[in-house]
Design a protein around this nucleic acid. Structure first.
Lengths: 202, 202, 202, 202
DNA sequence: CATGAATGAGACTTCATTCAT
DNA sequence: GATGAATGAAGTCTCATTCAT
């Protein structure tokens, strides 16, 4: 499974960085943060240890970069397929389904992000990828809820609390789907949508 | 804050194990899983490195023991104060408040458990404290929901999905309260209870 | 020549540090500062790499400690045999001879000190063992010269410049004796003494 | 201060080598031998790493070449301004002054030479630029002393010992002037000349 | 029972050197 | 000729674990 390590090849900086980031995602997801050594990552990427250090000053830097880049990738994956002109409840139902499918299509990315977010810390011990990295997601969610309230589809509620709750419920769904591979993503998604809409529908 | 290290003292096995587990919780919570070295834990416990190895074969063993023991401790803390003869909605409201207060009273325990659950792995890479550790919680939650449905307080819904969702929403609340120390636990708890009850009340 | 590495032995902190410092002197002298790796030093000391790190936080710390400790050792070696009640010219003649013999008895120490002093630097590039380490020597020398002037054995001259010059001449003697092992230390010492006394005698 | 790095330019071999040697002097003087990486030197020279390797097989080769070339440069700088038809004491006084000024005009060269001479070694550990590199200087000095003795300006003494002593005193002067930038070179030079002439004048 | 000195494996990182472009 | 991407060999340092005391 290791990318075979052909004769020395010169690639563009971006290509190499991408290659290394992907390898990082895979190794972190499979072995866990603590066991994702630079050697393992380099081997997975089909590249020398030295090259990894060349492109990323630090193990920490590499991890942070990987987490943020992957987060952006996932967000785009979910959002890109949505029709934002639909009524908010429709959008939510579609979005939850799309997320449910992430577990099937982007499992390593999901795991790697979780691992890195939880483990990467500054020397003083404070997490280095704070809740702030999710802030953008929360904001978008709140906007969506407020629009639903304006349009009359949703009742009044604290959009902040709901955004956080929504996100966590969706993440938990991913956790469940991860734990039970036989579960049907669409079915779980629909059950969850029912619950959520029951909570917020006008 | 380090337990002062008096002259060598012989203590009962249980006392020692407890001492070490508590130290582990504190160190893991403060520094993160990866930086919780046995030396640091020993020092925190006011005990020699050798003794830690004596009572726990392994770093992994120590971590697993710590996580499970602490999980039990927290579960008891929440459940002990509830009046299970109340109607289910009442119980939920009270339980959510109690959990919200955990962040204030048991922050290190919460952090440590999260760290260990996410990081501790078997050599082959599979997480060592699976979702199964939460299974007991889920089961209890489902029972409670079914009782609410029987008693007519709650409408019909998939209790499994709801249990998972409920648990995740509550965990997310803890995350939010951790991130924003100025937030009022009771207020957040009540907002969340409103949303949840809206979702499930008959 | 490597200290044989018997079964694990527990020694007092001071003994171990001394052992390691001696090994450092030897390795630095033989291979040069840059090639004196911690592995080589550990092997020479008959000790594991880890132990060296245990006793000295840093390679730099080890080097600094070694240089200062060795400098003190040499100073004592020279001074201890002098009769300070003699007239100053006598003292100088005796001291120069004693120093000349250092090359035979303490060659590695001399080389190691030189190597370390010249190479050890702070991160910003400034030498870490400044001329200040020699200051004590200079001061003693100046005192001696002033006493000679007071007692009428020496003529008037700038004692500071002379102290520096004296020290350098003596160091250079060591360099020469190192370069030409067939040279007779006593003879060189006497020649040098003649020159120096010619320069300063009343 | 880095040579600006224009578009790729082809220069004569000698020009390139000179460029690189100068950069080496600067980097070694500023950061010390051990921290003078080829990258740093290449950057300082405004040239690629590859080119440095192209012109000098080896880091060691580059260092040796740099030291020898710089030594020659300095020797020429001192000797060129002397009037060799003067009486020897005059020549010495003038020479010492000229050397004293080197510290102001050629500080990096002085530092770099010292660093390289002390650190560059053969694989077996023996210094690669031995005292022999100074031999030429000693020989010239001895000649001068013997001429002074013939001409009656200097008394009888061992010219070899004196040459070494002289050279070391002069080097020490440079060390002192380096350590104390406020010191007046001419004044120190004159004090030193007084001492030396007192030692050897007829 | 308890200690902490000692070991040894392995991680990260730096750099001289090579070589495709 | 010139570049700088890529390699691979050390080197330093950390830490779980062992074991003499």
């Amino acid at each position: 499974m290791t990318s075979t390590r052909g004769p020395r090849r010169r690639l563009s900086e971006d290509t190499r960085r991408g290659q290394i980031v992907q390898a990082t995602v895979k190794v972190v997801a499979e072995r866990g943060y603590g066991n994702a050594s630079l050697s393992a990552i380099a081997e997975q990427a089909g590249v020398s240890k030295g090259l990894v250090s060349h492109y990323f000053t630090d193990r920490d830097t590499l991890m942070e970069h990987t987490a943020r880049a992957t987060l952006v990738e996932l967000r785009r994956t979910v959002v890109d397929g949505l029709d934002l002109s639909d009524p908010v409840p429709e959008i939510l139902r579609a979005a939850i389904r799309r997320v449910a499918h992430l577990r099937a299509t982007h499992a390593p990315q999901l795991d790697a992000i979780e691992q890195i977010v939880l483990n990467l810390r500054d020397p003083d011990g404070t997490p280095r990828i704070g809740i702030d990295a999710y802030e953008e997601t929360y904001q978008g969610q709140e906007q969506l809820f407020r629009r639903g309230q304006r349009e009359g589809d949703l009742r009044a509620f604290d959009t902040r609390v709901m955004a956080v709750t929504y996100q966590s419920a969706v993440d938990a769904m991913l956790g469940q789907l991860a734990a039970d591979p036989k579960a049907d993503p669409d079915q779980y998604a629909d059950h969850l949508t029912d619950i959520i809409l029951a909570a917020i529908r006008a």
